[in-house]
């Protein structure tokens, strides 16, 4: 039954499944979600999928119901960048594939469309994240002046992070630069403004860098039994926190 046509289809299906898995991994999905999504799509085509999922590489084997081997391949993931639009788009697509019996070509087109969807414009992101920083400061008990300072600090910090990422620095270094910039602005500005050092502004100015997605995914991976990925994600979050702390330390010493 392994005709030439089927063979080609399986290869295409395997390639798109690996592509979908890699996209989910870099967009910030937990390991169980990646496994469920790939299994769901493979099932709708009548295949069993077995996979090995790690942060940097995905490995996939496709079998049919008689356990005839069909496809086996590896794919390396691109650098991580959280993108929940892709995450929700792929999740929605995987159900459509199952319920509406999509073809491989349709999946390919949908994935291409999802990847090409526009991000929020840079200035909107900068302003809203700045406001988020100011809100953090307010929640922690800061005054209006503190909030203003944190807005400026967060805005500049995120700007520096985007610029250094564009220049191709190591991602942890980018976080260090951003943390240094934000805390360097927040510290002295508050000191000059009100005559005393306010910990609220200084501490909340770097909160836009906190590794929320790695830490929460780390926890969900751990309790779902994907301990290895959980540990790696946790370690990643820990290094990010360390880079933030180093940045603050540098600006405190100056």
């Amino acid at each position: 039954m392994a005709e030439h046509h089927t063979d080609k289809e399986v290869k295409e299906l395997g390639a798109i499944l690996l592509n979908v898995g890699a996209l989910l991994m870099v967009s910030g999905a937990s390991t169980a979600r990646i496994r469920n999504t790939i299994t769901r799509i493979a099932t709708s085509f009548g295949y069993n999928a077995d996979m090995l999922i790690s942060q940097r590489t995905l490995m996939l084997s496709l079998y049919d119901e008689d356990n005839n081997y069909f496809f086996n391949s590896l794919k390396r993931t691109s650098p991580h960048g959280v993108n929940f639009t892709v995450l929700s788009g792929i999740s929605k697509m995987s159900w459509q594939v199952l319920e509406e019996k999509w073809t491989v070509k349709q999946i390919n087109e949908e994935v291409e469309r999802l990847v090409a969807l526009p991000h929020y414009s840079r200035w909107i992101v900068l302003v809203l994240v700045g406001l988020a920083g100011a809100s953090f400061c307010r929640v922690a008990g800061g005054t209006t002046i503190d909030m203003l300072v944190v807005f400026i600090a967060t805005f500049s910090g995120l700007f520096i992070r985007q610029e250094t990422l564009k220049k191709g620095f190591n991602p942890y270094m980018c976080i260090y630069f951003a943390s240094f910039t934000a805390s360097f602005i927040a510290g002295p500005l508050v000191r000059l403004g009100t005559g005393h050092m306010q910990e609220h502004a200084f501490a909340t100015s770097v909160l836009f860098l906190i590794p929320g997605v790695p830490l929460i995914n780390s926890f969900s991976d751990m309790i779902e039994g994907n301990s290895q990925n959980g540990l790696i994600r946790g370690l990643n979050g820990f290094i990010i926190s360390f880079a933030i702390a180093l940045g603050m330390l540098t600006s405190m010493l100056l």
């Binding site: 993108n83 929940f84 991000h119 929020y120 809203l128 988020a132 809100s135 953090f136 307010r138 836009f208």
Partner: peptide, 20 residues
């Protein structure tokens, strides 16, 4: 009043994570 700020902070992160 803190509710307003909790919400705003979350929106900032939502945009950073490029939510729909």
């Amino acid at each position: 009043e803190k509710g307003i700020w909790f919400g705003l902070a979350a929106i900032g992160f939502g945009v950073l994570f490029n939510v729909p």
